[in-house]
Computed example of a mutant assay.
Amino acid sequence: MQARMNNPAMLLPEAFTSIQALLKAVHSVDVPAQILELVHLRSSQINGCSFCVHYSAKQLKQAGMSDDRIWSVAAWREAPWFSDAERAALELAEATTRIADRGEPVDDELFKRLTEHFSEEQIAALTLMIGVSNMFNRINAVTRQPADATF
Rank of each mutant, 00 (worst) to 15 (best):
S50C: 03
F51C: 03
F51Q: 01
F51R: 00
F51H: 07
F51S: 07
C52P: 07
C52V: 01
C52Q: 01
C52D: 00
V53Y: 02
V53I: 14
V53N: 02
H54D: 15
H54M: 07
H54V: 03
Y55F: 12
Y55P: 00
Y55S: 10
Y55N: 11
Y55M: 15
S56L: 05
S56F: 02
S56R: 06
A57M: 15
A57Y: 02
A57K: 15
K58I: 03
K58Y: 06
K58D: 15
Q59F: 00
Q59E: 12
Q59W: 00
Q59Y: 01
L60V: 06
K61L: 06
K61Y: 05
K61P: 01
K61T: 15
Q62R: 11
Q62F: 01
A63P: 03
A63Y: 00
A63K: 11
A63T: 02
A63C: 05
A63I: 07
A63R: 10
A63V: 04
G64W: 04
G64Q: 00
G64F: 01
G64M: 04
G64E: 02
G64N: 00
G64T: 04
M65S: 08
M65C: 09
S66M: 09
S66D: 04
S66C: 10
D67I: 11
D67Y: 05
D67T: 14
D68Q: 13
D68G: 01
D68F: 12
D68N: 05
R69C: 04
R69Y: 03
R69A: 15
I70K: 04
W71E: 06
W71Q: 11
W71L: 15
S72Y: 04
S72T: 02
S72F: 02
V73Y: 04
V73P: 08
A74D: 07
A74E: 13
A74Y: 10
A74N: 14
A75E: 11
A75Q: 14
A75T: 14
A75W: 06
A75M: 14
W76T: 10
R77T: 13
R77Y: 02
R77P: 05
R77G: 05
E78V: 09
E78K: 13
A79C: 09
A79R: 08
A79T: 08
A79L: 07
A79F: 09
P80G: 05
P80L: 07
P80Q: 08
P80E: 05
P80N: 03
P80W: 06
P80S: 10
W81P: 00
F82C: 08
F82N: 08
F82W: 08
F82T: 13
S83Y: 08
S83P: 03
S83E: 08
S83I: 03
D84V: 03
D84W: 03
A85R: 11
A85W: 08
A85E: 07
A85P: 10
A85S: 15
E86H: 10
E86D: 13
E86V: 07
E86W: 05
E86M: 06
R87D: 08
R87E: 09
A88K: 10
A88N: 12
A88R: 11
A88G: 12
